[in-house]
Write a protein that binds this DNA or RNA. Structure first.
Lengths: 245, 245
DNA sequence: CGGCTCATGTAAAAGCCGTTCACATGAGCT
DNA sequence: AGCTCATGTGAACGGCTTTTACATGAGCCG
């Protein structure tokens, strides 16, 4: 039993050399596997091949490790949302929907980060750095909403961008939490979470007076460059929910 | 120290008499106080004045106690949604919005139940009884959506009720999770969670072609539905988000 | 090169929790 | 009155978190 540990130590020496990073990676794997609640400090230490006390040289306690992961998560989240938004190209509505899909994709593809960010029970606002990172991510949605709001059809009152952003965020988060993660994903749905969210956002935007039948319809913006750019996200004829039978 | 426990036992005898219920109540309090993750079996036992092993006579393990609470939560949730829906009185749209508010109210007023139901990481679909209870609650929303869908303005394709229900659920859950609970509630918002959700739902319904503003307002599709649906749902003129300044 | 220092690791221990097991109690039935 | 079995107890095991005193060795300074 003990020879294993000894061997590992022989391989890497008394000092690990990169323990902090190793712990973060280990924790990421463990959270992805067993959830933010199930993850233990001791397990991460074991996985990194160090004693249970070693992590305390790099993190005040278990919560600080979790916070670090959440922080990184928000940063990656921000990056992905930024890339998805792509400054509103090729047109605002298309890019906006892409942001929604990016939200779901992140929740699906980075369950560990998502778990640390939204399901770990961490007091986000107790950690200024964490709160700032969270805010930066949200600001992407906010900026996108702002651009969208500016396109509001004339004649109708302009919706507050902040409110729109909060609405979109709540939709994406609701769909991700309820239908796109872990066991919840097993709920039987008439459509995929992606489709569900896309329809939801489209209906919402239509409620605000935006033209959402992009492919063929006239949009408030000059039409996007090539027609096929909108393939895949196009609204099927008959509305955002497809053909009623 | 020990005389305390002895005294308690003297007061209530060797047998507790109603331990199962006492444990459920204790757990409810603890979860409300420290979150579903922070709650411990041992604490509940202590609070009930019994040894740490006693709870095992009533619950297979900690998870089963949590499941029991989630189960009760879904039942109460169903009751409150049913009451809010009130079979669609006085009119469908008004009742529909009332359901949304009831959702938020439940999340706010019963944090322990809500936590056990949605934030405890319990595998809902591993427990048939729990899953059934969850489904019954959702069915209230589904039924309401069905009634609403039936009122869809003629000429437009009828939205699938199931999809509407899922949309509404995700909105309510998203708003509740992000803005209406615990620390998250401290995020500074331009409006209350209730107002936020109400506006969101109204915009969404308008996107489906429902007339959601007061009779005086002009909508894209003026045809008023049967007198039943023309409500006094209290939408301020100018849209669901109030007057822009 | 030799020695010092301090960041980084370890073992051990205290205290908590979940869970199990053998045993105790007494409520309710016969 | 006596029996039985559901219900409660104490002790014990292993695991986790966190602290403390001690060990190691990498990097710097003369």
């Amino acid at each position: 039993m003990s020879w294993r540990k000894e061997q590992r130590r022989a391989e890497r020496g008394y000092h690990h050399g990169n323990l902090k990073e190793a712990l973060l990676q280990a924790a990421l794997g463990l959270i992805a596997e067993k959830g933010a609640a199930g993850f233990t400090f001791a397990d991460a230490a074991r996985m990194a091949g160090v004693s249970a006390a070693a992590p305390y040289r790099h993190f005040r306690d278990r919560d600080e490790l979790l916070s670090s992961i959440a922080q990184r998560g928000f940063e990656q989240f921000e990056q992905r949302l930024t890339a998805a938004w792509d400054d509103g190209r090729p047109d605002t509505v298309t890019a906006f929907e892409r942001v929604g899909r990016a939200y779901l994709a992140f929740a699906r593809e980075e369950p560990a980060f998502y778990g640390a960010m939204f399901e770990s029970g961490l007091p986000v606002d107790a950690n200024p750095a964490l709160q700032a990172a969270s805010e930066r991510a949200f600001n992407i949605i906010r900026a996108a909403a702002e651009r969208l709001a500016a396109l509001a059809p004339p004649g109708t009152p302009r919706p507050p961008a902040m409110m729109m952003a909060l609405h979109i965020w709540s939709m994406a988060h609701g769909v991700a939490s309820l239908f796109s993660r872990g066991d919840a994903a097993r709920r039987k749905l008439p459509m995929s979470p992606d489709e569900l969210l896309e329809a939801e956002v489209l209906i919402y935007l239509r409620g605000l007076g935006f033209p959402t039948d992009r492919p063929s319809g006239k949009s408030a913006e000059p039409p996007p460059v090539p027609p096929e750019a909108s393939s895949g996200s196009g609204v099927p004829p008959g509305g955002p929910w497809g053909k009623p039978k």
